[in-house]
Design a protein around this nucleic acid. Sequence first.
RNA 1: GCGCCUGUAGCUCAGCUGGAUAGAGCAACGGACUUCUAAUCCGUGGGCCGAGAGUUCGAAUCCCUCCAGGCGCACCA
Length: 554
Amino acid sequence: MKNQLASIIAEAVLTCVQKGLLPEVQLPPIEIEVPANPEHGDYACNAAMVLASLAKQNPRKIAQAIADNLSDPEKLLEKVDIAGPGFLNFRIRDEFWRKILQDIHEQKEAYGRVNLGQGKKVQVEFVSANPTGPLHIGHARGAVVGDVLSNLLEATGYRVSREYYINDAGNQMNNLGKSVLYRYRELQGEAIDFPDNCYQGDYIKDIAADILRREGKRYLAENEDETVAAFNAVAGSVILEGIKEDLRDFGVVFDCYFSEKELYQEDGVNRLLDALKDQGFIYSDGETLWFRTTAYGDEKDRVVIRKNGDPTYFAADIAYHQNKFFRGFDLLIDIWGADHHGYMPRLWAAIQALGHERNDLKIILVQLVNLLRAGEPVAMSTRSGEFVTLREVLDEVGRDAARYNFLMRRSDSHLDFDLEVAKKQTNENPVFYVQYAHARICSILRTAQERGLALPAFDRIDASLLGEPEEKALIKMMARYPEMIEGAARALEVHRITFYLNDLAGIFHSYYNKNKVVTDDAALSGARLVLVEGVRIVLANALGILGVGAPEKM
RNA sequence: GCGCCUGUAGCUCAGCUGGAUAGAGCAACGGACUUCUAAUCCGUGGGCCGAGAGUUCGAAUCCCUCCAGGCGCACCA
């Protein structure tokens, strides 16, 4: 709808130029928006105001010229007004709005899919938590945002790969192995002064006990470094399996788990650094190796090889992102906790040094979650073992409510997650508001069925019977669904979908309370059934992108 | 000290990349179940968009300066 209008306007501007009403100007990007005030029509366009400064003419005069030269062979427009400083306000004929209903019924699950991405390959990397402990509530938000963004991009014509980067090399993993070893010794009566930098959670004890059960106490006699490495590997894989299971139950499934260790195979990291050295991006100060990230705007250069010869996390990350590009992705999206924001400039510098554009890597920051229980903050720390796990949240509040709650704010805004509120089945919990709308429609359809009223095909109804204000509002809202999806994908903002759902469900509930769908009037009932089935399809499609259920009964 | 994010109704937050009279939910108050599900609806009140200057036809939105909060500023990840 919006696109049709845009081309009509662009054509009219062209006509004006040809007639000499406007000077030869490049048409700047114009905006077509839905006005806040319905009296301003269905769509409003700022073309005249944008052109005013370029053409050096009065915007209202330009608007008049455009309006006079609109060519509308399909008779899309009911009315065009010029208002305010030079807005063009368009009212679309009802007949065209009703055609949206036809589109929905023809396209069903596909309604709202657009081809923004044109088959481009995108990789979304998210969660990527160290396998040193179970996922907690903080990881959950990033998991949902990444998963839903992936769904959204798939729905808008991208080919998406979801990837989890396993940080299984480095100090943190070493601490994990040590933690297990200490518990292992402890289980055999040894008094251990458990270090602060080790992981204290009970899951460590379980892993130690398991090793003891399977392999006995043979490790006591072995070399400590080798034992730590072995424990490390065992613990890492046990914990990773647990993470995968939690994510699966949360509705998050990855296409690929990429191990940091892989990057070091065949000396990959060093070979990359050598190549970058040849290009002048790497230099040595005699003890350490530095990456010249300042060449691309970072505030200081960064170490890639430490004094002790070990590569930094950053060194591996450069290799990792190069590897991603090698795999043929046109666009990379990384989803990080907001506490990593200081890391962005150096990674952008790195990919530019590798010959890519800064825009080839988008980074979405997800703010930390403030976990509350009945208004009281819940303290969290992975190392001390005091945290609320994703598993506990799933068990307590359920998948749908948990996911929806994480999607109700912009990613870069702080989020209060209150366990007591999230599990309440009341109107304080917005997920039910939307699901209830879906369930209600299903209930209407069931009732109709029972009374022998089947859902008619679109061409069997008289759509002009849908004249109530809420009916028109519902249709217009549904017409905006593809536009909302496209906008959300363009901006990489998944929260727009929850706000849209809330609005659509709201209009429906209001309609439901005022009007009956199933009545003695067969023609009217048929038209209304087609309408509410359309609403149901749109609700289900949007909920599908969110990975939240669309129940038929509640 | 430097950098990034945030500041909008009592509370939690939207505001479609500069548009018209700034919105929603919760909370408060008053109404609606003989009905296709009251997990719903209808109505009422509530604002110096942190402050100040600037850019232009037009600013919650963009620039600058402050103020407040959060997060970063490693040869950790």
